[in-house]
Amino acid sequence: MAKRLGQHFLFDEEILEKIIKSAQITKKDTIIEIGPGKGILTRPLCERAGKVIAIELDPYFSKTLRPAVGPFANLEIINDDALKILCNPDFLARLKKEKSLKIVSNIPYQITTPLLFNLIFSPLSWELLVLLIQKEVANKLLAKANSSDRTFITVLANLWAEISLISFVPKTAFRPQPKVDGAVVRFLPKKPVSWLLFEKEFIRLLKIAFSAKRKTLTNVLSAGYQKEKERVKNLLKKSGLDPNTRAEDLEEKDWLNLYQNLRSSSFI
């Protein structure tokens, strides 16, 4: 079951310690753990946090987690799909009452990307997140301008939070061993959240721009919006951008400037 659900259990104590330390856990915190599995991370979370809510999809691990971890009164176990319950209005309303909400998890690799989208657009106010994810995804999130690793989610995630690498994690640190290495990444959500994340046309702009990464912005925006190339070139120049630049070359501030110019010029 664990392999089918994409779970790989961390057993490296040094990496575990780095996760706990970087989460800066106090008794004021309510910690969400996604995919606790055998409870290797759950126990130290319960020892430090005021409350731990462990969301486990696998019915077997949901039943065996408490005996494996111990009789912690501050541990709540929910047998459900994290992607669904973190969108459930009743569950969200309950979490909104928590004063200091954090996520600390070894994320099942197969849900990493949809989970990140869920968290970025979540109505909840997260204090901090420490996630063990695929190294490939971490590289995308941490990629700077002019890097081929930059994607649509790179821009969204960096508008949403300050992102830092805690440690790379070799695949040998897990059982069963995954096919790829991992990385521990910390997210400090920005407050207030960038208004751009609430702009549907901005999200559409990013999707179009990154839909053909190897094409210039002149070509991809002209095709995506069905506008004349000369008009696109002029707007890019007005935004201080080379018409031959690509989506991966832009920093977050460049996207803000470009979007504002496109909108003020009635391009979108």
Rank of each mutant, 00 (worst) to 15 (best):
C46F: 09
C46Y: 05
E47K: 14
E47S: 14
E47T: 06
A49F: 10
A49K: 05
V52Q: 07
I53Q: 07
A54R: 01
I55N: 00
I55W: 04
E56G: 02
L57Y: 11
D58F: 12
P59H: 12
P59I: 13
F61R: 07
F61L: 15
S62V: 13
S62M: 12
S62D: 08
K63G: 01
T64R: 10
L65Y: 14
R66N: 05
P67S: 08
P67F: 07
A68Q: 07
V69K: 01
V69C: 03
P71V: 02
N74K: 04
L75P: 08
I78T: 07
I78Y: 04
I78L: 15
N79I: 04
D80V: 04
A82I: 13
L83E: 13
L83C: 12
L83H: 13
L86V: 11
L86W: 12
C87I: 02
N88M: 11
N88A: 13
P89E: 09
L92T: 05
A93D: 15
R94P: 00
L95D: 07
L95R: 01
K96T: 07
K97C: 04
E98P: 08
L101D: 06
K102G: 05
I103L: 08
I103S: 02
I103V: 15
V104Y: 06
V104N: 01
S105E: 00
N106I: 09
I107Y: 01
P108A: 13
Y109A: 13
Q110V: 03
Q110H: 15
Q110D: 11
I111E: 14
I111T: 09
I111W: 06
I111A: 14
T112Y: 05
T112D: 10
